[in-house]
Design a protein around this nucleic acid. Structure first.
Lengths: 187, 187, 187, 187
DNA sequence: AATGAATGAGGCTTCATTCAT
DNA sequence: CATGAATGAAGCCTCATTCAT
């Protein structure tokens, strides 16, 4: 019980820091200090920095998935589901603008450590399926392809928002996204 | 004359390495060695790693801009321009899948060094204008907003292609992009 | 307990080296080696070279203060106190001829690091007070001013002794100092 | 002719910089730039940094000697000579508080380069003789010893003035110096 | 379960100095 | 006379990681 709590506290702190600053910019020391643990203590829970980062990332996604998926799926109409998806996604982007960068970093670190991209599959699939199912309900012809585009757009927007946040109005974007992603529906 | 050549050689090597691996993973030592220069020699040309990275990034974009913009603009119809834009962009993404990540890294390093995002403005605007002008010719209602979305989509796709490249077919994506980004045109 | 010992060992070694050679001439590497520690280990105890140098200097002065002040003050007559002061000071100068130079170096390094001279005040005052109190007992008219001169003379002699040691006889100096610094006493 | 001018310009700039900041803190690059010369050019005139520093130091002392000695010696009475000596010395200290430190640095650098202290002898003797002759005229018993003390006091004051300038009033010091250094004259 | 001391490798940067031109 | 390109050594510092306690 105690162990689990400490581990979770570490994951939370790590996720928070990695979401703010670059992988190499966050030291184990800093994480330990913020958790209220010694550096050695950290290594008792996670065998390496990479391991911690990886788990922190998964932890973050799980949190979001658990919390948001049900909310989205509980909307009445397909249109409302899509709107909810956009709303929650944007909220997430605004709050974690650097998460997709962190994702990439962990991915690359994984390659260095000999872990290919296999572990991200399930991950990627999970949200692609959600997106895809919504597009399907909406009567889009190639729901999966559109889901891929939508996912990519979100990540791209996160980055652009971070670096050029002042240049566009979120509200305009939402309307436009709605318009183009609902284009070309059956009947 | 000599100086310029060496500097350009350094920029090329740096861009190549930074496009492949993370900022912190590429050392000045490695760059120097690959250029055929001593570490000290590198610092003769660039006062710091950040300065080199920044210039390498700008260099990379300039190269692309100079080469591709004219080709795109020389297409006959607006539709052909857009198709050319998509084609060249995809080609660029396939060749430099990590460039947007490098962009972000340089941007963040810049913040650490006290340089705000001001220097990227011109940059961002330049390609936004190209995209926007094409969407305008295409009769899109909010060409600028659509340009923003298109730019974000490209960056997002670069990242996703990198991490989940095996999961989608580029050809399908192109068709779908064409469809949704041409949606809702005047008459 | 262990930590304190190591730290003190480091301070001793550092003081020894810095008292012999210039600040920039003593490397952290050398200190570490002489202590029997890795470079990294040094930084575990002192966050920077400057920090180490500063503490080493303070350590050195404290040592001297603790050891010598009581001895001086325990002399019977004011004249004996002054004689003792001169004797111990000369002994110190002969043993640490470059300490005043080290002082200056640390002081300047401090300026570079943004630390003003505030931290030396207490220091300077401490020995000025000792000198002053002795001159007061001796019936000198402006004990504080004379203390300032005496302090400056000591530092000056340290430097000159170092650079022109062969040119004068310590014994002669002592007598002369005694004569001039006791000049102009009340009654 | 041209050569001499450039050399002198270099010496002036070097002296100025070395008088302000530590030996290791002044780079050949900086000197060259301030002179309006390339780094390579500097080495055409001076074979090494040490050589330049040494000559700059000598140059500085010569300047002072040439300018001030005559003024001091032209005073009417011995007392006036001593007062003039104090006045000019203090002026020099206020203007070049770090020169004695520079002296020491060059001296140490010289040791590293295998040059003993021989070269400073003439130097040291020159001003010792001036001081000594004045004390002799003043009827002091051991003029040479007192000259040594006076010289040391000046250097010591320079350092203390630098580090604790705010703590004493120059005027008080002058009076006190006059008093103690004129103590114990024959009849 | 956790600490704290210690390591060692690697990174960026500075700089006196050289030399072809 | 003078430049500018280049070197190479050295220095400070950071950090993930280990291990005895």
């Amino acid at each position: 019980m105690k162990r689990k709590e400490t581990k979770e506290r570490i994951l939370e702190v790590a996720l928070e820091l990695f979401s703010e600053r670059a992988y190499d910019d966050v030291s184990m020391e800093e994480i330990a200090k913020k958790v209220g643990l010694s550096k050695g203590g950290l290594f008792y829970y996670f065998s390496s920095k990479y391991e911690l980062a990886k788990e922190a990332l998964l932890y973050g996604f799980e949190q979001w998935t658990k919390e948001i998926f049900p909310k989205i799926l509980s909307a009445k109409s397909p249109e409302d589901k899509f709107k909810a998806l956009i709303d929650y996604s944007f909220e997430f982007i605004l709050n974690n603008p650097k998460l997709s960068r962190f994702f990439l970093e962990v991915y690359e670190e994984g390659i260095k450590h000999g872990n290919g991209l296999e572990q991200w599959k399930g991950f990627y699939e999970e949200y692609l399926e959600l997106f895809g199912s919504i597009f399907e309900e909406l009567g889009v012809l190639n729901p999966r392809v559109r889901a891929i585009l939508f996912g990519a757009l979100l990540d791209g927007l996160a980055i652009h928002y971070l670096m050029a946040g002042g240049y566009f109005d979120i509200r305009d974007l939402k309307k436009e996204i709605l318009e183009i992603f609902l284009a070309g529906r059956k009947d």
